[in-house]
């Protein structure tokens, strides 16, 4: 639960963007779409685990 999560997401975002450019230049648009989807899936799994942690801790604290 600290700052390196932000850097991880930023790194994945920039990596996917660069990969997209390279693949589009190389003419493989379908693989570019694949990398975008892979990036979205990875970042979503990170974000969802973080959000569930936040919601459970808020629930236990306010005994919602």
């Amino acid at each position: 639960m600290d700052i390196d999560l932000l850097f991880k997401i930023a790194a994945i975002g920039i990596l996917v963007a660069v990969l997209n450019q390279v693949l589009q230049r190389a003419g493989r648009d379908d693989q570019a779409m694949m990398t975008t989807l892979a990036g979205v899936v990875i970042v979503l799994s990170l974000v969802i685990s973080e959000i569930s942690e936040l919601f459970t801790s808020v629930r236990t604290m306010f005994n919602l």
Partner: peptide, 26 residues
Amino acid sequence: ISVILKEYKREYVIYISIISGAIIIF
């Protein structure tokens, strides 16, 4: 980070705002 990512990938700005909100609340 969200300003940098805004040019390359617009949808990652939302992830950054969600995660930074969670970190600050924690």
